[in-house]
Design a protein around this nucleic acid. Sequence first.
RNA 1: GGGCGUGUAGCUCAGCGGAAGAGCAUCUCGUUUACACCGAGACGGUCGGGGGUUCGAUCCCCUCCGCGCCCA
Length: 885
Amino acid sequence: MPTQYDPAAVEVPTYQRWVDAGYFTADPSRVLSGERKPFSIVLPPPNVTGNLHVGHALDHTMMDILARWHRMSGDEVLWLPGMDHAGIATQNVVEKQLAVDGKTRHDFGRELFVQKVWDWKAESGGAILGQMKRLGDSVDWSRERFTLDEGLSAAVQTIFKRLYDDGLIYRANRITNWCPGCLTALSDIEVEHSDDPGELVSIRYGDGEDAIIVATTRVETMLGDTAIAVHPDDERYAHLVGTTVTLPIVGRQIPIVADEHVDPSFGTGAVKVTPAHDPNDFEISRRHNLPALTILTPEARITDTGTVFDGLDRFEARVAVKEELRRLGRIVAEKIPYIHAVGHCSRSDDVVEPRLSLQWFVKVESLAKEAADAARDGRTVIHPPELAARYFDWVDNMHDWTISRQLWWGHRIPVWYGPDGETRCVGPNEEPPGEGWTQDPDVLDTWFSSGLWPFSTMGWPENTDTLKAFYPTSVLVTGYDILFFWVARMMMFGLYAMRDEDGRGLQPFDVVALHGLVRDERGRKMSKSRGNVVDPLAWIETYGADAVRFTLARGANPGSDQAIAAEWVAGSRNFCSKLFNATRFASMTGAVVPTGPLDREGLTDADRWILGALDRTVRSTTTLLGDFQFAKASEGLYQFAWNEFCDWYLEFAKVEVYAGGEGAERTRQVLGYVLDTLLKLLHPFVPFVTETLWTSLTGGESLVIAEWPEAAANQEDTAEVDARIEKVQKLVTELRRFRADQGVRPSQKVPARITGLEAAGLAGLEGLVRNLARITEPEEGFQSSAEVEVGLGTAGLVVSIEIDLSTTIDVEAEKARLAKDLAAAQKELGLATAKLGNTAFTDKAPAAVVDKIKARAELAEADISRFTARLEALAASAPTGGTPA
RNA sequence: GGGCGUGUAGCUCAGCGGAAGAGCAUCUCGUUUACACCGAGACGGUCGGGGGUUCGAUCCCCUCCGCGCCCA
């Protein structure tokens, strides 16, 4: 057996073995028959163009931990994978390829272009699925879905028709977020705001007493102004309301109107009104019957203004119009730079232009209310609860959702227009109308289809066994940053489409478990421009998937961000190696995993101590996983495995095993039992290394289908045993400290006489102390050169060890050691005495607390007198050196 | 501007009314037959500042300062 674990050699074949064995395939019949409880997760569908980034790695690790834990706990687990078609992103990818040959999608026509996108998807799309396998995702590949596949497309058409017939989908001319790069409308959540430097230009309209000054960051839009608005109570402008003013450059007369929504305290209190290019202005125009003049083409070039600026790009026009206004003496002030929030397209990063256009919308009011209610009444629990406010903030203030996109790649809107202006929405099983009718050219927002994901993937609108067994899903795991993207959409559609027997909406998930962002090692957000993006696959190659998973799990505190760095992944790799070596040792010493429950008769204190700690770990791990506390669960397992099992128990076990006999046999069983249980507990976190070690240790088929451990039913109270082992640890640690201070090499054995063990209740544990502290029995000619006294937590309870170093001791080092201990004890005594001298404390504090402080004071006093005596003895006996050997 | 978080050892984070914790980093010693991807030991913190409540505050309240996120 090698001394180091090599993840690269085992991970890929191990994963393939799991898939081939069918461990991840869900069987709804076992749920419907009542044999097993269901546990289901739908994977928030990644983008078909995407690659696994470290945020996915965290998300997937959490889901996989839950899936594997529930599978081992005897639930029927469905973890359903798939991808979304990512309308804009995917179309952009293929259009970029065409652009290399100087072609556009229009050169091919709609049908041919869409075929090219499918070709691309077949060849290079979905790389992320292979990357999920590397990470170890235990998803049911037999149920993989794609938002644009046949079944899901039928689901989209079905729900569209239902919403349309219910009056929840409508078409209207509205101001929408328009991306001049992608040439499509966007929904609110596809717009990202950033504080960008721009300029705030103040322009004077009119002259003399009738002059009115407005400020804007988009000077070119003045060409489309159709009014000036002021607040009705604003006395500064009262005399102007109802009059008109000449629009500079254009020469058009525009009215001055009074509108409640103008903020009189902002700027000059007057605003220019450009109805076709600003949502607020559009509202004002509707209230005052103002015309809306579209002055920008879809590509954001000036158009239809009748000025020399027609044809200019918006940013060129911004400069040119300002210069012309300056020439006309209309510029009164400029603030440069002026930092303000600017919306960018989340796909292309182009500055989004508010633009009046005819689009399809979902009327969200009733849907959003349902989505909020389901969370408020606990049908869906948001975890951690402090993030629920964020969810409510969003669903309570949602605007109607723009669902049409001017793209070709996606679900085409199933609405047809007749020769006489008729409109007909076509359901999934209906024939489209014939001659003379044309279908709406637009497609639906990708999230319209991903909103159906929790049930469309299970076969909806058919009432399949999968749906019956696994909907509502148990938990949705996702980052708080996309709470709006996934959760709100899926909640709205799930509650609308899925109903229980009473016709009540059925929530898509029982729990929404939110995690934070993965940041770089200094806590900064990862970004391409900063160059601090980490590639989880590179880390998987270097350190193994288990190491990446364990690092992410260990940092995953609910709802909060985590930092990650390569050296921490290396630490997790080291942990996997530690497990490997512990198992290696256990195998070499002949550890056996008991087939039934462990026989707890005749066990040593060390055995009972580790079993007690193991039981606590089983209990806490199970509880913490149920509460999505991945960080604490991982940390607890790490501490148990490394600091208790490896650092102490294995050393105790060596003493017993090397002694041979019956005790050795029992220890081998305990070793096997603890390791078997530990590997099971760790399997959801680090599936590959645990699988490798467990199958080799036990000869079992697979940990994937092994049974999740339960804490011993009649667990004995190990408090006394724990106290004894703690004392042993204290003795060993103090002796090691003395040795280190005296410069005695760890491997060097030194003779020593121990007294007081029996009084401390440690009579049977001398062997452990001697072996771990590397001290031997005193032999002939034994001469103590130093005495170490170790206090064991109670005043007067002291074990003394006389050590024969067979050389002079380093008196200065020993003095320093004692002085340090003395100072600590004195500080302790000072604090305790002060408290006890305070009658307010002794009167009001609980008796148990007062007693505890009294005990501490006594212990400190005892320590002080002991340390003082020893220091005095040192000073008297050896002022210049040590005692001759 | 509104809201939500957050500030604890050099770094990343737990703890959140009764003796300051972990991992990593640093320093010293060490090839002792599971492991140098290791072992043993050590160093390191007026728990952002200031008030208040309490017998007692890192923990509760107020306030100020710093940082982050979301929404306008």
